[in-house]
């Protein structure tokens, strides 16, 4: 397989953990919170999913267990921030460290064991297209479900009343409360959703993308997902596009080969973060200027 074919085949799978975690965090941030514990929630999800699939052989159970455990960890964050009113930066980092530690603790006896991944399915008819058919359009079931899920999330956030309520809570919590929306409950639900998505992201990383357990296997993907939310300016479509872009970049050296340029892989690995800083400056500038005029 050439580098280009490899990229076509691998990008969606590489992007998937980033996409799921980032979409979850996006909803959290839309309600006006910031949970920095993505890396830890993904790690604990990855460990639980691996253990579950290792013993039962059922990926469905692994994904469900990961979603539940990561959501529980997210609820610790929600409890500290929403109920106890603790600082959210500190609370996010706390559950992040906790999740990373727990993942290593649970996964200790499973170190470098492997399981089988999932079969890949081609889209009917379309998978016969040369080049992209057997690569880009042949993916495992989770990828196809994630594509559908992303569209569904876009629909909910942009076309339904629930989406409007979420936006209202984030943009003006006082007003939302005055109208009678249960702000704390909505935020709790958003944080739980964020945790669930991180759990699924971790589960995909450890049981499908690279079906083996190694401590530290999330390897910074939680931080990239956090960057991705900013990069995507809190919009589902742009976050999904960003996930693909960052997914390609995460394949680092392969990408460099495909482009045929000798760029140090560290430059490629830094690009998501650099672009995110740039993006942050561009977005913030408008609001900053506007607030200064007042």
């Amino acid at each position: 397989m050439s580098a280009v074919e490899f990229l076509l085949a691998g990008t969606l799978a590489a992007a998937l953990p980033l996409l799921l975690a980032a979409l979850g965090e996006m909803v959290v941030e839309k309600t006006g919170l910031l949970n920095l514990g993505l890396e830890g929630m993904m790690a604990v999800g990855a460990a639980i999913a691996f253990i579950c699939v290792y013993h039962t052989g059922a990926h469905v159970l692994g994904f469900m267990a990961a979603a539940i455990v990561s959501a529980i960890l997210a609820m610790v964050f929600a409890f500290l921030v929403i109920l106890v009113k603790a600082n959210q930066v500190a609370a996010g980092l706390a559950i992040g460290v906790l999740g990373l530690g727990l993942s290593a603790l649970f996964g200790k006896t499973y170190e470098s064991l492997t399981i089988s991944g999932l079969p890949e399915y081609g889209l009917p008819l379309l998978s016969h297209i040369p080049l992209i058919g057997p690569t880009l359009l042949t993916q495992d079931i989770v990828v196809w479900l994630a594509v559908i899920g992303t569209i569904a999330l876009w629909y909910v956030l942009n076309k339904t009343k629930l989406g409007l309520i979420i936006t209202a809570v984030g943009e003006n919590a006082e007003a939302a409360r005055a109208i009678g929306y249960p702000v704390a409950v909505i935020r709790c639900a958003a944080v739980a959703f964020g945790g669930t998505m991180c759990g699924l992201a971790g589960a995909y990383a450890s049981t499908v993308y690279t079906p083996l357990w190694a401590d530290g296997m999330i390897a910074g993907r939680g931080w990239i997902a956090l960057a991705l939310v900013v990069f995507g300016t809190w919009q589902t479509g742009r976050v999904a596009f960003g996930a693909l872009l960052f997914g390609i970049l995460s394949l680092g050296e392969l990408t460099a080969q495909a482009i045929g340029v000798a760029i140090p892989s560290q430059v490629l690995s830094s690009l998501p973060y650099l672009v995110t800083i740039l993006m942050l400056v561009v977005i913030s500038r408008h609001q900053f200027r506007a607030s200064k005029r007042l």
């Binding site: 610790v76 500290l80 706390a94 559950i95 460290v97 906790l98 530690g101 993942s103 290593a104």
Partner: peptide, 13 residues
């Protein structure tokens, strides 16, 4: 080794 991280995370929480 990770127990130290667990301990730190719990302590802060």
């Amino acid at each position: 080794v990770a127990a130290v991280e667990v301990f730190q995370g719990m302590l802060l929480s």
